[in-house]
């Protein structure tokens, strides 16, 4: 599994996608913005490029040659995607702290940058993975339809929450005014759901990939 992860970052994933979270994370410094777009750029930009590279590099043929199990292939791919997501979240969080330090005004017209916001980001990525990866592993190479459906779901969830908070005061209270304790709880809840989604993504993906003819 570790060798496959090494292969992912040495052969398959271009180093630019490790730099990309820094560039995208910096968008957190825009004052008064729709910040869920920042994590969503990973779905809009990184994922389509990564998966088209897998196809262009004929990655499946390469993997078929190696003494590796299909479950390890799935684990490594999920590991690589989750690793990049965590890097995006980490850097977005650092830039979010910078945003707070620079502007001293947490009151955004849409979602504020606080722990609850990052709880939501975890849920967005969890939903995205849960749709994208099992659908992708149905063939092991075709990513168009999985991408459209998973991006639509993640965008609806993220931007839907941004819109809802503008019009729904209860939700704004829960996400922004309920105090640090509740916000921390929402962050932990988001992380928990993200972790659960990883396991479910793996189970569904391997079930589908096992029956794929390479």
């Amino acid at each position: 599994m570790l060798n496959l992860l090494y292969k992912e970052f040495k052969l398959s994933i271009h180093p630019f996608f490790l730099l990309f979270p820094f560039l995208i994370g910096a968008l957190m410094l825009i004052p008064q913005w729709i910040f869920t777009l920042v994590p969503l750029y990973f779905c809009f930009v990184s994922i389509p490029n990564l998966f088209s590279s897998y196809k262009a590099f004929n990655d499946l043929s390469f993997l078929a040659m190696l003494p590796v199990s299909k479950s390890d292939i799935v684990k490594a791919r999920i590991g690589a995607v989750v690793g990049l997501e965590l890097l995006h979240i980490l850097l977005a969080a650092i830039f979010a702290l910078l945003n707070r330090a620079i502007y001293h005004n947490p009151n955004n017209f849409a979602l504020d940058l606080n722990p609850a916001f990052f709880g939501l980001v975890f849920v967005i990525y969890g939903v995205f993975n849960l749709i994208m990866l099992p659908m992708f592993f149905k063939t092991g190479y075709s990513f168009g339809v999985p991408l459209i459906i998973s991006i639509t779901a993640a965008t609806l969830l993220g931007l839907g929450m941004e819109l809802l908070i503008i019009f729904n005061s209860s939700l704004r209270y829960l996400m922004e005014e309920s105090g640090n304790g509740i916000q921390a709880l929402l962050l932990i809840l988001g992380m928990g759901l993200f972790t659960l989604s990883i396991f479910e993504t793996y189970i569904l993906s391997i079930r589908r990939f096992e029956s794929v003819d390479v």
Partner: peptide
Amino acid sequence: VMLGDMDFYV
């Protein structure tokens, strides 16, 4: 194993 041309990661 070699199945066809080595056409991966060219």
